[in-house]
């Protein structure tokens, strides 16, 4: 018993010594994470203070005051709803469209056509959100392409100011996200598909499987681990519905559906100088994210699937 207890640390040091190059190489990364991820957490103390920049961290302590304010604020509830709704729409759209496109691309036999389609589909990923927001807002203007098409199809009679329609906002964000990111998101699935053993397809073909059955019974199960891992990772981001697109497209009329937690934090924290309230909002978001991530990970383990942590 005692020898084991003594041997363990010795073994640890010995192993550390043999892996010293690896350890050395990871030092900068660990420092980076500590410096930029853990040190700023000290700023969370602001959430429990009446923070005034002039006084700094010597500002008076107020306990849970700002959290109480947050949860009694109608606006914060609205903002939570918007964040979750847009996030959920993004999550569902991202998965279905990306997997769908990956399956379709995989079926394209002509290599040249396939890579051209793939390149074109992921090009928008490299556009800045400012440019995308400009495109979207001019497309949705009352004399924009969208209205022209709807009118031509006879769906609407009078052009609508789409960015002034609060209820349309979530869907605008959802589809803009799809357009911008779908190509990029397929890359990882295409990589996963390429690692599926071709013998399986051949066997299935001999057994008389058509295209769609092969997709369903070989491709999809083959990339299931990838899908699950990505799903877990994405659930950890469910409180992040994005910031730029909402920020750039929001206006007085649609603000009830456009403001996400991040925008709330920026408006109340930075613009109106209420740093404590902003920190409380941001902190709440992080805590929820961690809980969601852990839960998803645990559920996935229970279901006998991949676990991330």
């Amino acid at each position: 018993m005692s020898s084991v207890a003594i041997n363990r640390p010795a073994g640890f040091w010995k192993r550390l010594l043999t892996q010293r190059q690896l350890v050395l190489m990871s030092v900068p990364i660990v420092l980076y994470v500590i410096l930029f991820t853990y040190v700023p957490l000290a700023g969370w103390t602001m959430a429990f203070q009446d923070f005034k920049p002039a006084k700094g961290f010597a500002s008076p302590w107020v306990g849970w005051k700002w959290f109480q304010y947050l949860f009694s604020d109608d606006l914060f509830v609205t903002v939570m709803r918007n964040t979750l709704a847009m996030s959920f729409i993004n999550l569902v759209f991202n998965f279905t469209f990306a997997i769908g496109l990956a399956l379709l691309l995989n079926e394209v036999k002509n290599k040249w056509v396939k890579s051209l389609a793939q390149t074109i589909s992921y090009l928008p990923h490299f556009l800045s959100w400012v440019v995308v927001a400009g495109l979207v807002s001019s497309m949705l203007a009352s004399d924009g392409v969208f209205n022209v098409i709807l009118k031509w199809l006879g769906i609407i009679k009078e052009p609508k100011v789409w960015l002034g329609e609060p209820k349309a906002f979530w869907w605008i964000v959802g589809f803009t996200n799809v357009w911008k990111e779908v190509g990029w998101n397929t890359i990882i699935y295409l990589a996963a598909i390429s690692s599926i053993d071709p013998a399986l397809y051949e066997a299935a073909q001999i057994d008389g499987c058509g295209r769609f059955s092969r997709m369903r019974h070989i491709t999809l199960p083959g990339i299931k681990p990838t899908i699950v891992v990505l799903l877990i990772m994405n659930l950890g981001w469910i409180m992040e519905s994005g910031f730029e697109i909402q920020y750039l497209l929001k206006n007085g009329m649609n603000q009830d559906y456009a403001q996400s937690i991040d925008i709330y934090v920026v408006t109340y924290g930075l613009r109106n100088g209420n740093y404590s309230l902003a920190t409380a909002g941001g902190m709440f978001k992080s805590v929820v994210n961690i809980i969601l991530l852990m839960t998803a990970n645990w559920v996935s383990g229970k279901l006998g699937e991949e676990k991330l942590v």
């Binding site: 005034k52 606006l75 206006n251 007085g252 603000q255 009830d256 109106n272």
Partner: peptide
């Protein structure tokens, strides 16, 4: 001053008119 309850109330009111007045007008 920034961060005061008065300022918060005012900001809220501004957000409210920015949201509701277009509806009133349109």
């Amino acid at each position: 001053p920034d961060g005061s309850a008065e300022k918060l109330a005012f900001t809220k009111a501004q957000d409210t008119y920015a949201k509701d007045l277009p509806k009133v007008i349109l």
